[in-house]
Amino acid sequence: MIAFYILAAVLIASAVFTVTQRSPVYSVVGLLVNFITLAIFYFSLNAEFLGVIQLVVYSGAILMLFVFVIALLSSGIGPFSEGPNRLPLILAPALLSVLVAFGFLIFGLGRGPLVPALSAAGNASVGAVGTAKAFGSVANFGTALFTTQLLPFEVTAFVLMVAVVGVVTIAGDASPAPTLGHHGRRRKRAKEREPIVKAGR
């Protein structure tokens, strides 16, 4: 119980930290802490497999991706340079709408029980974390993934392929060949013709 509140506090704090830092590197660190805390939450919610996935994929791969991109874009150490703020008046409406939305959501939450309460008895049927074939264990998860949820699983493969192709197309080739222009093309064609003559020698 107390653990929940402490972890919740860490979660929120790290989220705020991520969003408010000048330097993206600090934000990445904050995000890392956030993800790890989330993994702990997953473990506590009988989602062992997902917890591990969270650690491996999210904090291990995606955050590294962020770090590399930061490295690619930054010309030096320190915060990136930014232009003038073109929407100075956005702060108030943004915060207002966020608070309104959050408020109504909490209000809606308070209206009644969402699900049958998580009871200790329910816990028993679920099985403790780490137990083989318990709810959320690798075996359980894997069984679901390869039987009832097979189609989405296959589709994700497709999604990942699309992502790879997209990334290569969008950001590949740092310096593409410059366009030759009219005279350039003629010169290029002329150059290409030469070897045929030269080959006769």
């Binding site: 962020f66 969402l114 959320g136 969008i170």
Partner: peptide, 27 residues
């Protein structure tokens, strides 16, 4: 919610979300 309803589909959904999020972050 997956834990509350004791339904593994919720966790499978999370799996998919992670995948998509990864792809989206990459792009």
């Amino acid at each position: 919610f997956a834990r509350a309803w004791v339904n593994i589909a919720g966790q499978v959904f999370v799996f998919l979300v992670v995948t998509v999020a990864a792809a989206e972050a990459a792009i």
